[in-house]
Nucleic acid binder design. Sequence first.
DNA 1: GTCTATATCATGATAGAC
DNA 2: GTCTATCATGATATAGAC
Lengths: 234, 234
Amino acid sequence: MPTSDLLPAEGRASATREAILGACERLFMQHGHEATSLRQIAREAGVNLAAAHYHFGSKEALIQAVLKRRLAALNDRRIAALDSLEREARGAPLKPSHIVDAFFGTLLRMADGPQGPEGRNVLALLERTMTDPASFVHAFISREYMPVIDRFRDALFRALPDVPREEIVWRFQFMLGATSYAIVGPHALYRAAGLGQHDTPPQRTEDDTRLLLPRLMSFLMGGLRAPLPEHSPP
Amino acid sequence: MPTSDLLPAEGRASATREAILGACERLFMQHGHEATSLRQIAREAGVNLAAAHYHFGSKEALIQAVLKRRLAALNDRRIAALDSLEREARGAPLKPSHIVDAFFGTLLRMADGPQGPEGRNVLALLERTMTDPASFVHAFISREYMPVIDRFRDALFRALPDVPREEIVWRFQFMLGATSYAIVGPHALYRAAGLGQHDTPPQRTEDDTRLLLPRLMSFLMGGLRAPLPEHSPP
DNA sequence: GTCTATATCATGATAGAC
DNA sequence: GTCTATCATGATATAGAC
C-alpha cells in the first residue's frame, strides 16, 4: 500500500485539496479519524468522494497529510525559538523556563495566531494524536515529532546538569500530558454532564484563554523544579 | 448449575460474558474501540459472534460495560481512601498531598494489584477514555467519573483555602493529564521510532514501575503548590 | 483534473434452528 | 444459551466517462 505520493504532487495546493484538508480537521477533531468516513469528509468539504483518493491516495495518507501540515508548522516555530535562545546564550546553559516556554508556550501561542479560535481546536487534534492507538499514526509521530522532542530534552539535560536524565525524561512526559489536558480544558466534561449541575462555569471564558499560558507555565515549572523523589532501595 | 436468569441481567457473571469483557479490554487497549469489530472480539474471546449481542445488546453497551467494570472498582477505592482520610482528620482540613495520593496514588497502585501487569494496561485504557471523542463515552465519563472528581476537588478547595478555586480546577486538570501520560510512559514513542536510535532505554524497566508513583507525586505536588501566576490585567 | 458509477468487502445486527 | 445463516448498510477503493 505504500504507493501514494507519486502523481498527485506532494506540496501542491489546489482548491479542493485545501477544502478536503479543512473538512478533515473539523471532522477528525469532532469525532476522531476512526469514526470519520471519507463520505462525511467529501460532504463536509463539498467535493466528490473520489477527490480524496485522487489527491491523497488513501485515507491513511490523508490523515497523515492533515497532521503533517499543522505539526510541521508548530515544530518549525519551536525549533526557531530554541535556536534563538541558544544563539543569544552564546554557549551558556539556557534557563529551564525559557526552554519550557519555547516548547509549550509556542504550542499555546499558536492558538492565538492568525487562524484565531480555530487554532485551539487544531491543537487539541494534534495532542489527541499523541495517544492514538493506530500504528501508522504512532509511526508518524515518531518520525515527525520525536526529533524535536529530543532536541528540547537535550537542552533540558544541559540546563539541569544536576538532575538525573531519567528524571528529566519522565518530567518531560508529565509536562506533555499536563499540556495536552490544558488544551482540552476542564470544561469539556462539565459540558457533557449537563449545564448548571456543577458550580464551575461550563463555558470557556475569555479569562481562560488569556490566563491559560501563565497558569500552565506555573504548574509546569513547579513540577519540573520539584524536589526529586527519594530513591527507595530495590 | 442453575444459572437461569430471565434477562441478560446487568451484574450477572457467566463464563462467556467474562471472556468477552476480557477480550474487549485487550483489543480496545491495543487498537481503540472504534477500530475493533465485534468479530475480532468474538474470535479473541473464543465465543460466537452472536454472544456479544445476546449478553450486551449492542456494541455501545458492551463498551460501557467494559469501562464501567474497571472504573467503578477504581472509584470505589478512591472514595474509600478519601473517606478514610476525612474520618481520621475529624473535621480538620486534609493535607493536599494526602488528597492527591488518594486520587492518583490509588490509580497507580491498582497496577500492582492482584491482576498484575495487566492492571497497568487497563489503566491506560481508562485514561484514553478521558479523551475519547465518542459522545456516548463522554456521557459515560460524565456520569460515572465526574461525581468522584467533584468530591476530590471540593476536598482540595477546603485544604487550600487561600488558592482561588479556579486555579485549583485548572491544576487538577493538569494533574489528570500528567498522570495520563505517566501511565503510558515515555517509552511508547521511542519504541515506535525503532530501537537503538535514541539514548533512552526503549523498554520499561523494573525501576520505572517501582519509581513511577514517587516520581509522579513529586511532580504533581510541585505543580500544585507552585506560585500562582500573576494576573495580568485584561 | 474532476466526477459518475460501481466493485468488493467488512461491519453491526437479527431471526430462527438446535 | 449458543450457533448458523443472512440482512441491510456503509466502508475504502477503482475504472472510466467527461
